[in-house]
Design a protein around this nucleic acid. Structure first.
Lengths: 179, 179
DNA sequence: GACATGTATATCACTCTGATATAAAATCCA
DNA sequence: TGGATTTTATATCAGAGTGATATACATGTC
């Protein structure tokens, strides 16, 4: 199977919520997707152009702001999104620079390894706090979202919180064990 | 800062354990690194060539198996590895296709979403079982490794186990909540 | 002896990344 | 009012990283 452009599906999914510019798509990834999906302009714009020629998206001409290009998903695009949504997801390979570095740190002084773990822990403590705050806001209903979508967002937040929890626990455990 | 070739550090770290071929490096990633670090031949071979011209590695001519190219880390390479080992590690962005798909599945039938979660859970149950078996083997001392390195391997395994645990818990919780 | 698997190197098209350039509009604040 | 900064917006580039594929010899096995 040929390599698949995954950004295409992210874009279809986002435009299916509401039409938007390339910039909007990037912003959506950085906020709503809670860091679970990274996207770059250097990939968004060329992909949008390709999607346009493949008729998966079209340009919304209602708002003709010269510079701004508003994309909308087409029925063909919705079909493509649906087919991705129903197909099985394979686990993608990981590249954890931290874990790589840790394994090769067996010769490093103990204090340095403890510092590594402490820094890593702090990053996840901060991340978890951010998720908890967002969870709180979502429960207070500060932002206007449909009940349906809010359930999915809550599940994603919960995932982030549990994942940080596991990492923090592991850091503590590993530091207590003396490496 | 320019984009950094991380494979270079993985290769330096591996060759610092013992000299090896490009093939050995790939095998090390697939086994010892427990899936925490993915590497491709398509990147290993060109990177090794570049490292050779940068004098970070050299060719071990003791075993002249014609076809086989045995690389060894140089003092310059060891210096480069050391500098990477002591510098801070930033958290790299994530791309979880599963989480992306989940968020866009709010319109899908409930049974389909439950199946998605169940499949995802099973993948992590299997993965955790594999880690547990390896942990058991390591404790039995089946493989010959130094005490020092074994401590680091145990920490990595523990990380994998806890991470799977968190994912499995989240899947159960999310399925029980009915979405 | 045929067939499959493992070891080994290499290349290709394509995906993805982060830096950088450019410029207009909105916001800040003094 | 005006200057400075931030936000919005598009675009390109070199280089990192991916997975498929080709080739070929060695080893194991049935």
């Amino acid at each position: 199977m040929a390599l698949k452009n995954k950004s295409l599906y992210a874009i279809l999914g986002i435009l299916n919520v509401s039409p938007g510019t390339g910039y909007d798509i990037k912003k959506y990834c950085d906020t709503v997707l809670l860091g679970f999906w990274n996207e770059n302009f250097g990939h968004i714009y060329p992909t949008l152009k390709k999607m346009l020629s493949d008729e998966l998206v079209e340009i919304d001409t209602s708002e003709n702001n010269e510079k701004k290009i508003l994309y909308r998903i087409t029925p063909k695009g919705r079909l493509e999104l649906e087919s991705w949504l129903t197909e099985e997801t394979e686990l993608q390979p990981m590249r954890s620079e931290f874990m790589l570095k840790l394994l090769f740190s067996s010769g490093q002084p103990k204090e340095h390894i403890i510092k590594m773990l402490e820094d890593y822990k702090q990053i996840h403590v901060k991340k978890q706090e951010k998720y908890l705050a967002m969870q709180h806001d979502l429960e207070q209903g500060i932002e206007e979202i449909s009940k349906e979508r809010s359930r999915f967002l809550k599940a994603m937040l919960r995932r982030g919180i549990l994942s940080c929890e596991a990492t923090i626990c592991w850091c503590n455990e590993t530091m207590d064990a003396g490496l």
